[in-house]
Structures are given as C-alpha cells and as structure tokens.
C-alpha cells in the first residue's frame, strides 16, 4: 500500500495524468481540441515556457532561496537583440544566436555576482535586475525598430522539421536530455544537489559554492535568452515586454514538476511535464466560452487546487 502511495505521489505521474485528463476534458468541451495539429501547437508554446523553466529549475535546485525573477526581462531583451541582429535575414542567425547567448550570460553573471559577492537574496537581486531590464527595453525600443525574425528561424519554430515535429520541439527534447545528463551524470550536477540540500556541508566538502551559483544564474540567463530567440521566431517580430508572461509561470512549471522552492531535490523531466500542464490548462480556458474575468478566476483557482497535489510544506507536528 505504501508503495502505491509512493508512486501516486510522483510529481511526473501526477502531471501526466492531469495532462491526459485535461486533454480529454478539452476534447469533450470542444471537439478537435486534442487533435494532432492542436497538440503540436500546444507543445510549441510549452517548449518556449519549458526552455525558460530549465534555467529557473537550475537556480531553484541550487537552493538558498534561489529564484530568478529576471527571466522575463531577459526573454524580451533577447528577442529584440535577435530581431535586430538578423533583421529578417537567414545569414544573420548565427550571429544572433551568439548575441543572445552573450546577453543572457551577461545578465545572469550580474545576478550571480550580486547574489554571491554582495550576498543579496536572489529574489531581491533578480527583482532589481528585472527593473533595470525593463528600463533598458524602453531605451532600446526608442532608438531602434523591434526587428524581424529570419524566415529560417520562423520555419524552425513553426514548420515540421523531422518526423513531423518542428525544430523547436527537437530543441526542447535536446534541452531535456542535456539537463538530465548534467543533473545526473556530471560532477557539476551532483554539486547542484549538494549545495541545494546543504550549502555548508557542500562547502566543507570542497564544492566551489560561489562559482557554482554564478554558473547557475548564467545558465538561467542563457536559457531565457534562447527562449527569447525562439519566441521571436514564433511571433515574427518582438513587441513590448513579450517575455513578462514567462516570469511566474516558469516558477510554477518548476513547482508542478516536483522541484520544491527550497531546492535540493527534483529534476527537469517533471518540469517539462509541468510546462505542458500549464499550457494545456491555459489553452482549455481560452476554448471555453467565458469572459476574460471568469477565465482568470478559474485559472487562479485551478492553480491553487493543482498545488495541493504537489510538495506541500511539512506540518509542524511532523
């Protein structure tokens, strides 16, 4: 019996069951909701969120209240940078990728240095950085046009590439494999769990805690920047604060994936399912014929109910 309960508490399983149930519900409410093409569209949207959540996941796993509120700003900034570097031409894509990765890494570096050297709580540091990024976006948008996606990039995100799946899905699968490899097969990954569960012990054991933390924030910036690049391909051109919608959902995807906010345990596979779950839920709400207000209320209430399934805090009597 205990074993059954143990399996039933597996976050990945919960998410998959919920996704299946929601798809079934969606298809009942509006036939065609769970059709192949529709599911593919949902997966593309989920991939964008999932890539942002990969970085968020790493920062949260690293513990000490690790969280990155600046990802939304980095996504927006990266979309603008990419749009202007490539400016609608395929030849500019490699340079655009470089520019985006550099942008994400740079802001991640600032976050990481603030958190480690100045010992500012991550929530505060990345919140402050979000303010800076939002200001920077205003400045940039004033001086230059928003830029356009290269045709090849748009095709990569929206058109089938291999086995009927668009390139971005393959990219996401690649991110998933990479994350699994990093977290479970490398020393770096083991050290993430180590500093996440007991920083002091990890430090005593010789883990370069500060460098680790800076690296995690830089990775978070890079993942957000890659998502920004893909988002540009998805929407064709970047527009105001396009990335803001990823800030808190990326955290929720991580939580729904079974990585608790205190960090130290969990993984990325669950987060991927969490991202799909969130996107399917949002999509169902847009197909139901209710007002925006009602949609928001149902969305908020559903999130709360779903959270009951996941990592509730320890009881005081435990």
């Amino acid at each position: 019996m205990n074993r059954v309960l143990e399996i039933a508490k597996n976050p990945l399983l919960i998410a998959l069951v919920l996704i299946a149930a929601l798809l079934f519900l969606g298809n009942t409410l509006s036939p065609g909701f769970a059709s192949g093409g529709q599911i593919l569209r949902l997966l593309i949207v989920a991939a964008l969120l999932g890539i942002v959540a990969a970085g968020q996941n790493l920062v949260i796993l690293g513990g000490r209240e690790g969280i990155d509120l600046s990802v939304g700003g980095v996504v927006s900034l990266s979309a603008i940078v990419a749009g202007n570097v490539m400016n609608g031409m395929d030849g500019g894509i490699p340079l655009a990728i470089l520019a985006c990765v550099a942008t994400g890494a740079l802001f991640g570096l600032f976050n990481g240095l603030g958190v480690t050297l100045l010992r500012i709580p991550p929530l505060v540091m990345t919140l402050g950085m979000l303010g800076v990024l939002q200001g920077l976006l205003v400045v940039i948008r004033q001086g230059i046009p928003s830029g356009r996606a290269a045709p090849a990039l748009s095709e990569f995100v929206t058109r089938p590439f291999l086995l009927g799946l668009p390139g971005i899905i393959w990219l996401w699968i690649g991110v998933g494999l990479l994350m699994a490899f990093i977290l479970h097969r490398t020393v770096f990954g083991q050290r993430i769990y180590a500093i996440g569960s007991n920083e002091q012990a990890a430090f005593m054991a010789g883990v370069p805690v500060r460098r680790m933390r800076v690296a995690l924030f830089m990775l978070s910036g890079v993942f957000a920047a890659i998502a920004g690049l893909c988002l540009l391909g998805y929407s064709g051109s970047s527009f105001a604060n396009v990335g803001e919608q990823y800030m808190l959902p990326s955290i929720i995807a991580v939580v729904f994936g079974g990585t608790p906010l205190p960090g130290g345990k969990g993984g990325y596979t669950g987060t991927m399912a969490g991202a799909v779950l969130l996107v399917v839920l949002q999509s169902i709400l847009t197909t139901i014929n209710i007002d925006e207000s009602g949609r928001q209320m149902v969305f908020g209430a559903t999130l709360l109910v779903l959270m009951l399934f996941y990592g509730r805090g320890r009881g005081l009597r435990a």
Binding site: R295, Q296, F299, G300, M307
Partner: peptide, 9 residues
C-alpha cells in the same frame, strides 16, 4: 501568485 490571478479576475 495564483490568488492574485483570482483576485484580478
């Protein structure tokens, strides 16, 4: 965050 979505609705 979830309750904030609800209150906004």
């Amino acid at each position: 965050f979830a309750t904030s979505i609800f209150f906004t609705g």
